[in-house]
Simulated assay, not measured.
Amino acid sequence: MVPIIELRGAIPFGVALGLSPGTAMLASILGNVIPLPFIVVYIRRIFLWMRRRLPKLNSLVDKMEKKAHLKGAKVTRYKYLGLTIFVAIPLPGTGGWTGALVAAFLDMPLRKAVPALFSGVAIAGCVVTFLTYVVQVTIL
């Protein structure tokens, strides 16, 4: 699981390897949501540590923080519903990991951010699984 691809690539890849769409979806959703609470809680500390210990990565940290703030502007208006919708859109840069980064930088409490993130990932998983199934049936 990589942050840019997340389940949007994992589900079609799993189906291509012979997994059923449901199994691929379940595995992808679980793999996607496991790191989310840790990202929400620890990402700011990790970025601070990176700035102090690995100054060569400052530009990467700046880029990630800028991305979180830009994406956060879209989420701020609708709070947790906005976070769910943001994560549910199956496009690159809108997944669970970015959503968790946004939640961390908007100081959303973990107990409210995690259900929104999990819901968004589940919705995205269903959408991607449906699209994968349609493509698979069309090709075969």
Rank of each mutant, 00 (worst) to 15 (best):
S20T: 07
T132H: 12
H69D: 02
F86D: 06
I85F: 01
L106C: 00
Q136H: 11
L57R: 09
L101F: 00
P3V: 14
G18I: 09
S59A: 12
P92H: 08
P12M: 02
P90A: 01
I4H: 08
G18K: 08
P12H: 05
F47A: 05
G14V: 04
R111A: 15
T76G: 03
I85P: 00
K112P: 01
V114I: 14
V128E: 08
P37C: 06
P12G: 05
R111H: 15
G95S: 03
R51V: 02
P12D: 05
V128Q: 09
P92N: 09
T76D: 05
K56C: 01
A100D: 05
V128H: 10
V75H: 12
D62R: 02
T23I: 02
L81E: 06
G95F: 07
G9K: 14
P21D: 09
L70S: 07
F13Q: 05
W97Q: 07
A16S: 10
R8V: 06
M108L: 12
I85D: 02
I11W: 01
A73S: 15
A68C: 02
Y80G: 12
L19R: 10
S28F: 04
Y133N: 14
T94I: 04
V2H: 14
V127S: 11
K74V: 04
R44D: 04
L83G: 14
P115H: 15
K67I: 12
V87S: 09
V137S: 12
V40D: 02
V2A: 13
M64F: 06
K74I: 02
A10I: 10
F118T: 05
V61R: 00
S59I: 08
T23N: 00
F86T: 10
F130D: 01
M108N: 03
K112T: 06
I123S: 08
G31K: 15
G14D: 12
V40I: 11
A122E: 10
S119H: 09
F13W: 07
R52S: 05
G93E: 05
L110Q: 14
K63Q: 06
K74E: 07
T76A: 12
K79L: 13
K79N: 11
P90D: 01
L19I: 01
G96T: 11
K63P: 00
T94S: 07
G22D: 11
E6F: 13
L131D: 07
F13P: 00
G120A: 03
P115A: 09
K74P: 03
F118N: 03
T138H: 03
